[in-house]
Write a protein that binds this DNA or RNA. Structure first.
Length: 625
RNA sequence: GGAUCUGUGGCGUAACUUGGAUAGCGCAUCUGGCUUCGGACCAGAGGGUUGCGGGUUCAAAUCCCGCCAGAUCCA
């Protein structure tokens, strides 16, 4: 693993500039902030002279010139020019191309590109869908974000644990179990999660007609008790649902390492242990009188610098355990996070839930019996949860602040994203407006469209080959569309846009990869890479080289900021730069052998990096489409 | 009542965290481009007072203050 040519050049240039600035009598702080790629004014530019000019005689231009006069420019700089107060550098392209090509060929898809994570373990939690319905488009957005964030961390050298929390004691599952006992017990031919989800809609229609609150609360108690018929039934229904949901996950090439079931948190008494700790440290207390008598609450009044979201509260408390003894969502989540960060003993037992996922790895689940596995106990945990949960997530972090564990409060990273909505409004499991808008529906629709395109264009392929390509293109279109927005922005889902195969899209990137692969195949160059960088220095090649040279930096940025859209944008720009070159200069058909070799080598480097980029996005690359 | 997020050409958005040279991209519209490597492509054109008003600065889409509009959460 080597650092990117871009960061090396930037570092070296910054150091040289700093030295020169000091020699010229200035003291610039953080000079590397002011050094970056520029367009139209050389290759790299520096704006530090403006900063220095503050409150000092002399124009930025003069200051820039005096710095340049003292500058011992690194060898890779061909020309230095002062323009409008900026210092502009022109690189020796041949050198930079060589550096970038070596770098591009050194990148292996199975290995991290960055050592940023230092092999530290990080938990990424997604999508934590209730086990009583199929994934709808909103769940899919969560899963795709989570999977990609996990891939990004892996690429940055983290040891990633992909966890999925199964809330099988929440009100939704209780209602579904009630429905199974009181309504239709026959799943029939339908995929189990779809059937269960549709039954759930019926339960809600039933609840509007009559009040079943008492029945539900009794049912929940039975479900919480080990060994009852109801607890076994509930777990069985939930597990069948999760298996059906897994088919969806696998069809989208989305995988996890371990399922954590709420019933197992309860059964292993970790919720009690968590509460005990909170009570002992005085973070929580039992109320004896007033509105919240017999509740266990978290006391916020002791917090010194209370974050702004807690301003304007009527009472400075948050209920953790209600007076009927049931825990709130926040209480469960605090306990879960204590486990994640190793504050509770790892009392879970694990067994394989799926022996071998399509990615070759097992999927474990918490269980009554089984072996202890060293999951959890991390310093960083990323939760993929939509922005409506900002407040509960803030409460969870606050609990750790109150415990004095600022490190944990800081280690909980909430990737808060704008929820996905239909044009007609937000999706809701209860209302049933997800019917026709499930993840399964979307993939089927996208595959249909992709298949008809490939069927026309590549008639000679076998049906199976066409299906494989159609699947890959469908995934490309869907995932790219879900990832391209900045996370805080809400998604108004559009079938037309999600199924768009042109422009800024997954298929566009896949198409450029396929083109590059075709060139390489037709060239019969095999694995032999010998080229002369001097033969390929036009802007078309160099624009592509510049982008490739900052691949590592881009992945790191995407990771540090928890923004997958940084990667979609990069992939698209990379593909566009290649397309530009492809359309503008002859590659295979070049009459000049040195040029031909050089351009083919660049195509090969491009193929390597776009393929890695796509794999981070969870998008398969195809050799033809 | 309190808090958070959003507001950028007809539509969808990037750049805002870290102020920097001409606000980048896609869709749609219009005009071109396959006797030369894959047209799921490319080139070009039109389309912008970056919600409004102040402020800071040599420089503001970006930072600060005040409004307006929409969404969400808490009470």
């Amino acid at each position: 693993m080597q650092s990117s040519p871009y960061s090396r050049v930037k570092d070296e240039l910054s150091r040289a500039l700093e030295k020169a600035a000091k020699a010229a009598g200035f003291d610039p702080k953080s000079i590397d902030d002011t050094v970056e790629f520029s367009q139209g004014f050389g290759d790299i530019s520096c704006s530090v002279s403006f900063r220095i000019a503050k409150g000092r005689p002399g124009t930025p231009n003069d200051i820039a010139q005096s710095i340049v006069d003292k500058l011992a420019a690194p060898d890779f700089v061909k020309k230095t020019a002062v323009q409008n107060g900026y210092i502009n550098f022109y690189l020796h392209r041949v050198w930079y191309i060589k550096q970038t090509m070596d770098y591009a060929f050194s990148i292996k898809r199975a290995e991290p590109v960055s050592g940023m994570g230092k092999n530290e373990k990080v938990i990424i939690e997604y999508p934590s869908v209730n086990p009583n319905k199929p994934w709808h488009l909103g769940h899919l957005k969560n899963a795709v974000l989570g999977d990609t964030v996990a891939n990004i961390h892996q690429a940055c050298g983290y040891n990633v644990e992909r966890e999925d929390f199964i809330e099988d004691l929440g009100s939704q599952v209780v209602e579904s179990v009630w429905g199974f006992l009181n309504l239709n017990k026959e799943p029939g031919e339908k995929k189990f999660d779809h059937w269960l989800g549709e039954e759930y809609v019926k339960v809600n229609q039933e609840m509007e007609k009559r009040d079943i609150k008492q029945e539900l609360s009794k049912l929940l108690q039975l479900m919480e008790q080990d060994g009852t018929y109801e607890s076994k039934l509930a777990r069985d229904l939930s597990e069948r649902c999760v298996r059906a949901q897994n088919q969806t996950a696998f069809s989208y090439l989305i995988f996890r390492d371990v399922l954590i079931w709420e019933t197992d948190i309860v059964a292993t008494k970790q919720l009690e242990a968590a509460l005990e700790l909170l009570l002992k440290k005085g973070v929580a207390k039992k109320m004896t009188e007033g509105e919240h008598a017999n509740c266990i609450v978290m006391d916020l009044s002791a917090v010194k610098n209370l974050p702004s979201e807690f301003r304007g509260l009527k009472e400075m408390i948050k209920v953790l355990i209600r007076n009927d003894g049931t825990p709130t969502y926040v209480a469960k989540d605090i306990a879960f996070h204590m486990w994640k960060f190793g504050l509770l003993d790892n009392r879970f037992r694990f067994i394989p839930f799926v022996e071998r996922q399509p990615n070759g790895k097992p999927l474990f689940t918490t269980s009554k019996s089984g072996k202890g596995i060293d999951y959890g106990n991390v310093k960083k945990a990323v939760n993929i949860i939509d922005a409506r949960q900002d407040y509960p997530q803030a409460l969870v972090r606050l609990a750790f602040t109150l415990l004095g564990r600022y490190d944990i409060a800081d280690g909980i990273k909430h990737l808060s994203y704008g929820a996905l909505e239909l044009e007609s409004g937000s999706l809701s499991g209860r209302s049933g407006n997800w019917i026709g808008n499930t993840a399964d529906d979307l993939l089927a629709e996208a595959e249909k469209k992709a298949f008809s395109l490939i069927n026309e264009a590549k008639a000679k392929l076998s049906a199976q080959e066409k299906e494989e390509v159609a699947r890959a293109v469908a995934l490309g279109a869907i995932k790219f569309d879900l990832l391209r927005l900045s996370p805080e922005r809400k998604t108004i889902f559009s079938w037309e846009r999600a199924l768009g195969f042109k422009g800024n899209s997954g298929p566009y990137c896949q198409y450029m990869y396929a083109r590059a692969v075709r060139l390489i195949e037709d060239s019969k160059m095999g694995g032999e890479i010998s080229y002369d960088p001097e033969a390929v220095t036009t802007d078309y090649e160099f624009n592509l080289i510049k982008l490739m040279s900052r691949f590592t930096d881009t992945v790191e940025k995407s990771c540090a900021e928890l923004r997958p859209n940084v990667m979609t944008e990069y992939a698209n720009n990379l593909a566009a730069a290649f397309s530009n070159m492809y359309e503008s200069v002859p590659i295979l058909k070049s009459m000049d052998e040195r040029q031909r070799q050089g351009r083919l080598a660049i195509a090969l480097a491009f193929a390597n990096i776009i393929k890695y980029s796509l794999s981070i996005l969870g998008i398969p690359s195809v050799n033809m489409m």
